[in-house]
Each structure stands twice: as structure tokens, then as C-alpha cells.
């Protein structure tokens, strides 16, 4: 899937023989991910796990209903819903970003995230 995409974008480069930047706009059409939202969503992973698959009782965002996500985030943003930390994040986001994050996370497949196994510190470590 991605290979096909890669090849088609590369053909575009070589056949059009254009400087890299000038093909960017067309290329974004070929590119499936919304880069801005994907990276922003990934930044939530520290508390909500990879692709929204949280552990330790934090909200699992993967597969979350879009409307529920938007309602919660807007309530954090407006101060209607009490929070320890989420209002800080919600206030920093634009409404269109919240809408797109809702779309993004609702499309993620919920999976059971795993934890790395804790180990004994080895003697040769710093």
C-alpha cells in the first residue's frame, strides 16, 4: 500500500523533473496521513499510550466515539469539566484540531498495549 504510494510519488518526481518543493502540494494529496494531526495525536502517548491504547486506567482513546471525544475535550477547554491536567492540553488546542483528533483516534484500532518487563540493573551499566 505505502510502497505503491512511494513509487507513484517518486515517478512524479522523476517524470516531472521538478524541484522537490514544487511537487509538495500534489504529493500531500497522495499522502494518506494527516501529518499534523498524526504527530499531535502521538504526543498524547505519554499518558494515553501508542495510538491511544492507554494502560494503567487512563482513558483509552483508540476507537473512542468521535462525539464523546469532542464533548469531553470541549468541556475541558471551556472549564466545564473539572480536571487535574486535561484542561491545560484542551485549552492549548484549536477546535479544528480537537475535531480532527476525534476523527483520528476513533479510527485507531483498540489493542491491548503491553508494558516492557522491568529488569535487574546490570553491573556494567553506568
Amino acid at each position: 500500500m505505502i510502497n505503491k504510494k512511494l513509487v507513484s510519488s517518486f515517478i512524479l518526481i522523476s517524470s516531472a523533473a521538478l524541484p522537490i518543493l514544487s511537487i509538495a502540494a500534489e504529493d500531500i494529496v497522495l499522502s494518506a496521513p494527516n501529518l499534523h494531526i498524526r504527530t499531535l495525536a502521538a504526543s498524547c502517548a505519554a499518558c494515553h499510550g501508542s495510538n491511544g491504547n492507554a494502560l494503567a486506567g487512563n482513558a483509552v482513546l483508540a476507537g473512542m466515539d468521535k462525539n464523546h471525544f469532542i464533548t469531553q475535550m470541549l468541556a475541558f477547554k471551556n472549564g466545564d469539566k473539572p480536571a487535574t491536567v486535561m484542561h491545560r492540553h484542551a485549552k492549548g488546542l484549536q477546535v479544528n484540531e480537537i475535531n480532527q483528533l476525534a476523527e483520528y483516534f476513533s479510527a485507531q484500532k483498540p489493542i491491548l498495549a503491553i508494558s516492557p518487563k522491568a529488569q535487574k540493573l546490570q553491573a556494567d551499566h553506568d
Binding site: 512511494l6 510519488s9 517518486f10 518526481i13 522537490i20 518543493l21 511537487i23 509538495a24 504529493d27 500531500i28 499522502s31 501529518l35 499534523h36 504527530t39 499531535l40 504526543s43 498524547c44 505519554a46 492540553h89 492549548g92 488546542l93 484540531e97
Partner: peptide, 12 residues
């Protein structure tokens, strides 16, 4: 892939 990165990154 000779594409343009996100021009306006946001993170937490």
C-alpha cells in the same frame, strides 16, 4: 520520500 513535512507542528 521527497515530501514536505508538517509546516506547523504542535505537541504537548
Amino acid at each position: 520520500q521527497h515530501r514536505t513535512p508538517d509546516p506547523s507542528p504542535v505537541f504537548a
